[in-house]
Nucleic acid binder design. Structure first.
Length: 239
DNA sequence: TCATTAAATTGTT
DNA sequence: AACAATTTAATGA
């Protein structure tokens, strides 16, 4: 067992491979010196399904990014009642809010499937923030886009039609700026999608069939291909 | 590399 | 929830 104060990233991590580094969206915005420090600082870990990447209340140690796989972000507010789930697909970097304030994590991040998670230390994150304007732009954009995601998530929560919920949730996961690693094909099973959206696998299957019939997506084995993102974004049953 | 087997995922009831 | 059909991943020659 890992000590309570450490993450998997701290205990059994390795250096990032060439391919993994290439998949990091903000890395090529840095200059040579910055890149060098980041690469030296960066740690990568393979996590198994169900494993926790970080836990609510733990002191912040890393700013995380998902290289490959699928994560679930769950946030139970102070007294546990409302729980919001968000899926985190490849290419997403998260935790900057708490890293900025050097607080403790406010989310549980759990792997839904076998995943590859990267991270840089809080110190390096702040070092970049202090000297790189492109990095600051990236973080600002990220915070801004994420705000939009949360607002969309609230709308989704209020929707009653399962088809609508699935469509909008998919649209969020296909966000090209926040999750550039996803591309056209999102690797997610209908089971996993059901878990994120809060529907049974059967109902998800039915909803996906409807979205496919409308030409918005194509259902593939182990994933969904987006054909018309705008259509998904504005999806409303009966129109 | 190929064939066989096991496991995962999907579509349907 | 259970089932059969399909696809992928793993295994070993």
């Amino acid at each position: 067992m890992t000590p309570a104060s450490t993450t998997a990233l701290a205990s059994r991590s390795r250096a990032a491979s060439r391919d993994e580094l290439q998949s990091i969206p903000w890395l090529d915005r840095l200059d040579a010196a910055e890149r060098e420090r980041v690469i030296a600082d960066m740690r990568v870990v393979n996590v198994k399904p169900g494993e926790l990447v970080c836990r609510v209340g733990r002191p912040v140690t890393y700013w995380f990014g998902l290289i490959d796989g699928l994560l679930k972000m769950s946030n139970d507010t102070a007294l546990g009642m409302p729980i919001t789930f968000t899926g985190m697909p490849p290419g997403g970097w998260f935790g900057e809010g708490t890293v900025l304030k050097r607080e403790s994590y406010r989310y549980n991040i759990q792997a839904l499937r076998k995943s590859v998670v990267a991270g840089i230390t809080v110190d390096t994150f702040h070092w970049l923030l202090d000297r790189s304007i492109p990095f600051n732009r990236y973080i600002t954009m990220q915070l801004n886009e994420r705000l939009g995601q949360f607002i969309a998530a609230r709308e989704i929560d209020r929707m009653t039609s399962p088809d609508d919920r699935v469509a909008r949730s998919l649209a969020s996961l296909f966000h090209p700026v926040l999750y550039p690693g996803v591309g056209e094909l999102l690797r997610i099973t209908q089971q996993e999608l059901g878990y994120l959206v809060g529907l049974s696998r059967q109902r998800v299957n039915e909803a996906l069939a409807a979205l496919q019939a409308a030409g918005a997506i194509r259902v593939e084995y182990g994933g969904v291909r987006v054909l018309d993102l705008e259509r998904l974004r504005g999806w409303r049953s009966g129109t």
